[in-house]
Simulated scan of single mutants.
Amino acid sequence: MTGYLTTHVLDTARGCPAAGMTITLFRVEGARREALAEMTTNSDGRTDSPILPQNGFGVGTYELEFDAGAYLRATGQASEDPLFLDTVPIRFGISDADAHYHVPLLLSPFGYSTYRGS
C-alpha cells in the first residue's frame, strides 16, 4: 500500500493556520474506536508528518478528532462554558489503499467545514 493520510486546520475567523491544536486519529470498526495517533499542528496548521503514514494505511473507516475547544480558548476566541464547539469529530472512509487522502478542518468558534483535499 502506498497511500497515506494528512490533515491541516485553518482558523477561518482569524484568517490563519491553527497552530497548536491536538488531533487524534481513530480507526472505527462498528462501535469500537482504536486510537492510532495523536499529533499537534505546527505553525502552518499541519502535522509535521502524515497522521497515518504508508506503513499503517489501509481501507476502512477512520475518525479525526480535533480538540477545537482548547485551541479556541487559547486564542481568546471562546470563553463561555460550555463551548458551542469543543471536540470536532470527522468520520470518513478510505476506499483506495494506494491514494493520498487529505482531510482538512476549516474552523471558527461557531462553525466548521471539511472536504477531501489533495
Rank of each mutant, 00 (worst) to 15 (best):
A37K: 07
F26K: 00
G45D: 06
L36E: 07
S49M: 11
G30Y: 08
P50E: 04
C16Q: 15
T22S: 11
M39G: 03
R46N: 08
S49T: 14
I51E: 01
D44I: 02
A31G: 09
L25Y: 12
G30C: 06
R46I: 02
V28P: 03
E29W: 02
E29Y: 01
N42D: 15
R27E: 14
M21F: 01
G20W: 06
L52F: 12
E38P: 00
A13D: 09
F26D: 07
T41I: 01
E34Q: 14
M21T: 05
G20L: 08
T24H: 04
A18T: 10
G30F: 08
T22H: 05
S43D: 15
A35F: 07
E29V: 13
N42H: 11
T47W: 04
T41G: 13
C16N: 07
R27C: 08
T41E: 00
L36R: 02
R33Y: 04
S43Q: 15
I51F: 03
L36P: 01
G45W: 01
A13P: 09
R33N: 11
A13S: 13
T24L: 04
M21Y: 05
P50Q: 06
S43F: 09
E29L: 10
G15R: 14
G45E: 09
M21I: 14
D48C: 06
R46F: 11
A35H: 07
P17H: 10
T24S: 15
A18K: 04
V28C: 15
A31D: 14
N42S: 12
A19Y: 02
A18D: 07
E34S: 07
I51Y: 00
D44H: 14
P17S: 09
V28Q: 03
T47Y: 01
E38F: 02
D44G: 13
R32T: 14
N42L: 13
T24Q: 15
M39K: 14
V28M: 03
T22W: 01
E29I: 10
L25M: 13
A13E: 09
T12G: 00
S43A: 15
G30H: 11
P50H: 05
A13V: 04
P50G: 11
A19N: 10
R27F: 13
R33P: 05
G15S: 11
D48K: 03
A37N: 09
T12M: 08
A35M: 13
A31Q: 12
F26G: 00
E34H: 03
L52T: 03
A37R: 09
R32L: 08
R27I: 12
E34L: 11
D44W: 13
T40W: 04
T12C: 04
L25Q: 06
D48G: 13
E38R: 14
F26C: 02
G30E: 07
S43T: 15
N42P: 14
D44V: 01
I23Q: 05
A37H: 09
R46P: 02
I51G: 10
I23W: 09
G20C: 12
D48P: 09
P50D: 09
L25D: 05
D44Q: 12
P50I: 05
T12A: 12
G30W: 12
R27H: 12
I51V: 15
A18L: 12
N42V: 06
A18R: 03
S43C: 13
